[in-house]
Nucleic acid binder design. Structure first.
Lengths: 208, 208
DNA sequence: ACAAATTTAGACAGGCTTGTCCAATTCGTC
DNA sequence: GACGAATTGGACAAGCCTGTCTAAATTTGT
């Protein structure tokens, strides 16, 4: 395990103040001196950890968004599968859980660092997802007013039943992820299903 | 400010390991010795803080749920107002923010303590809210399959646009709360509005 | 095989924190 | 005013952690 990976694990488990450089070194399988040689001091190491996690999480999120069902055959099934991928590869995995916890615990202590995350992460992520939903609406599969709102609500809905597990730092089972995604997508489609009239395309055009 | 209140503030700001008893004492306006006289040691004080926050948050949540619109005149407006009350009085206020942060940061370190919170808090909260939605469905105002799912999705939707602010420990403005609640309730009602046929009552009866 | 660079173990100073002890002071109550 | 209880400030030991230093061992590149 690399030093930053070990550091991520320890920072998450113990918090910044409680994290012990000796423990990080031991967990990484190197000597304490090597940690200092590579990263200077604790704060530096912490910043490196957050940047590393942010970068990897963003890469995962964008890779997953690239698999968005633009030409769905079965809209409900395709969106459920997409939501499950999103959860499994971006939100429930190691990097996602760690990054979330570090943001929650230390976000206020490093405003500029997490402002950077906010711009590069959720900012771009939501826009990208909103664009996909807008395209789906334009193609007549959905009836959406504000694609940005719809994208955020989509994510909120498919995660609705995992909140508590996330809060306590746990990893939901595959069944829980699937059930939450299924329930969330069904509700999402009930709300945003294409209206009978062809007004869907018109509304999308007005918003475009 | 009381000792537990000051301790809650410092534990949240600095994390458990980083919290300093001298600082807590100073913030509470007492001497360090008094803190030790009252609470024994740091861990004891931490447990007292979490129990106190849990109790107050639960009280606030149940008081707010009591104001659920059982006989709505304008369903959308009434649910939006309810969602805003929920946010303002339970989720965005001092106790709510503090408790959430402590759970996220230290939940894994005190499994029994937070399991207790989980049972008394979200467990009962969601059931109570689900019961209110079930009654609304029974009265013909909504068409709901599983009231528990609907209750969780309601909360997820009305908070959808506040997630990032919550993550970073901030307090959303009144406008943000209102906008998120409005968008969330509208989507919720689009999904769960009573169907034209009187099947709503029948479905509710079957589920009851 | 050799030289340079890196890694290691361990010691070490300095600082900070927890939790205790105690004498002096203040507070509440009669 | 007087007496018991609580509070205070400060000193204090013990432990832990960070960050540095050094000399030896190991790895790497050529």
């Amino acid at each position: 395990m690399s030093v930053v990976d070990a550091a991520a694990s320890v920072f998450c488990r113990e918090g910044y103040a409680g994290a012990n450089i000796d423990l990080i070194a031991a967990e990484a399988g190197v000597s304490r001196q090597t940690v200092y040689n590579h990263h200077g001091d604790k704060e530096n190491l912490f910043v490196a950890v957050v940047r590393d996690l942010t970068e990897r999480c963003n890469a995962g999120i964008f890779a997953t968004i690239a698999s968005f069902p633009d030409q769905p055959t079965d809209l409900e099934a395709d969106l459920i599968a997409f939501a499950v991928r999103m959860n499994r590869n971006c939100i429930c995995n190691r990097d996602g859980r760690f990054l979330r916890k570090l943001i929650q615990a230390e976000g206020e202590r490093y405003p500029e660092l997490f402002a950077e995350w906010r711009e590069r992460g959720p900012g771009r992520t939501w826009s990208a997802l909103a664009a996909r939903f807008a395209r789906l609406a334009f193609a007549g599969h959905l009836s959406i007013g504000d694609p940005d709102v719809a994208a955020r609500q989509f994510l909120a809905l498919v995660n609705a039943e995992l909140q508590i597990t996330f809060m306590l730092g746990g990893t939901p089972t595959e069944e829980e992820v699937l059930r939450s995604a299924t329930n969330g997508v069904r509700t999402f489609l009930s709300a945003f299903a294409r209206k009978k009239s062809p007004a869907g395309k018109q509304a999308a055009l007005i918003h475009a």
